[in-house]
């Protein structure tokens, strides 16, 4: 059983939901990212998503694009993120998931990526531009290295396809809350409740909801219909403002705690 499976199992027993924060690795620098991971864990995160910067992040809105550019400016690459994970892993057992576009993985080599990631202590991958149809070889290599491969479904994914995607995902199923890109949004998208209920009907795997979730009140509405929430842009925005300021972590802490407290 993977670390991710284990955490969802434990949370389910305790009738709790997972808090999954996303930060871009290397923004503002790798040392801060390392510190942030431990801070996020202290504040109640259950799984952490680390974004690998890419020059052309076409599923991301302006906030994560900008973070990605800043990290690239620091010379951050997939290789460096893997080494960072290795360091972080010395100090924590929290599940770490890499969110990366496919090209850096393809370029490093699928096998090499899977092997090095497993050795470093990565638990899984989310690759938004690698749908299950294109991921045959990657899934095999990931499985051989005990890595979870997390696929996404979107509100316009038909029921039959959602069933197919859910059958291929491992760790959890990532439910994109809107037809759109990442970024903070107000309120709950129309139809989200119905869509999440529909997803519940197609899989028994854990369901985590992401894209646009930035406030405790959104979390309170969404949490009962899912097994976890992913908070990205809102947090990345705070990191951009306070990440390298003295005492800046206090702002980040209070935000993450407010989200954690909104969760059952």
């Amino acid at each position: 059983m993977s670390r991710i499976d284990l955490i969802f199992k434990t949370l389910k027993r305790e009738r709790k939901k997972a808090l999954i924060p996303f930060i871009t690795a290397g923004d503002p620098d790798l040392a801060t990212t390392k510190g942030l991971v431990f801070t996020l864990e202290e504040c109640g995160a259950h799984i952490i998503e680390l974004g690998v910067p890419f020059s052309d992040p076409l599923a991301d809105g302006p906030v994560i694009q900008a973070a990605s550019l800043r990290a690239l400016g620091q010379g951050v690459s997939l290789g460096k993120v893997l080494r960072l994970v290795e360091e972080i892993r010395q100090g924590t057992e929290i599940p770490l998931v890499l969110m990366t576009y496919y090209n850096p993985v393809f370029r490093l080599g699928l096998e090499k990526t899977a092997r090095q990631a497993a050795l470093a202590g990565v638990d899984g991958f989310i690759i938004p531009d690698l749908p299950p149809e294109e991921a045959g070889e990657w899934r095999e290599l990931a499985r051989a290295n005990n890595l979870d491969v997390i696929f996404l479904v979107a509100p316009n994914t038909p029921l039959s396809r959602a069933r197919f995607v859910a059958s291929k995902t491992s760790g959890f199923l990532y439910a994109v809350s809107v037809t759109g890109i990442t970024g903070k949004r107000k309120g709950i998208p129309e139809g989200l409740i119905h869509y999440l209920r529909m997803l519940r009907g197609v899989t028994r795997k854990p369901l985590a909801v992401g894209f646009g979730i930035s406030t405790p009140s959104q979390v309170m509405e969404i949490a009962p219909l899912s097994d976890g929430v992913i908070v990205g842009s809102a947090l990345v925005d705070l990191v951009a403002h306070y990440g390298n300021k003295r005492g800046g972590f206090a702002h980040i802490r209070s935000f993450v705690k407010s989200i954690a407290e909104a969760l059952p």
Partner: peptide, 20 residues
């Protein structure tokens, strides 16, 4: 069928675009 010319091509896009 999958949009490949030999090993090239394919459909490497976010899920939201798969159905469209």
């Amino acid at each position: 069928k999958k949009g490949y010319f030999g090993p090239y091509g394919g459909k490497f896009v976010p899920e939201t675009l798969i159905t469209p």
